[in-house]
Amino acid sequence: MKSWYLLYCKPRNEIRAQQNLAMQQIESYLPIIQEEKTSQGKTKLVEVPLFPCYLFIYFDPTEVSVSRIHSTRGASRIIGCREDMTPIDDRIIQGIKNRVQRHKPEIDKGLQSGDKVKFTEGPFVDLEAIFEEKNAEKRCFVLFNIMGQQKRIETDVKSITRFRI
Rank of each mutant, 00 (worst) to 15 (best):
M1C: 00
W4E: 06
L7V: 00
P11M: 00
R12S: 09
I15G: 01
R16S: 12
R16K: 15
A17S: 07
A17E: 01
N20I: 02
L21W: 06
A22L: 14
A22N: 15
A22W: 15
Y29N: 04
E36P: 09
K37A: 03
Q40L: 14
T43N: 06
K44V: 07
V46I: 11
E47F: 07
V48Q: 14
P52C: 08
P52F: 03
P52Q: 02
F56Y: 13
Y58R: 09
F59V: 03
P61Y: 05
V64I: 14
V64C: 07
S65M: 03
R68S: 12
I69M: 10
S71P: 10
R73F: 15
A75G: 01
S76H: 13
I78M: 00
I78E: 05
I79V: 15
G80N: 10
C81L: 15
P87V: 03
P87Q: 02
D89H: 12
D90G: 02
R91Y: 12
I93E: 07
I96K: 04
K97M: 12
R99M: 12
Q101R: 14
H103C: 08
K104V: 09
L111G: 01
L111N: 05
Q112N: 12
K116Y: 13
V117P: 09
F119E: 10
P123H: 08
P123R: 08
F124I: 12
F124A: 01
E128D: 11
A129T: 04
E132N: 13
K134C: 05
N135P: 03
E137I: 12
K138I: 00
R139N: 14
F141I: 07
F144D: 06
N145A: 09
N145T: 09
G148H: 04
R152I: 05
E154N: 10
E154S: 14
S159G: 06
I160V: 07
R164H: 14
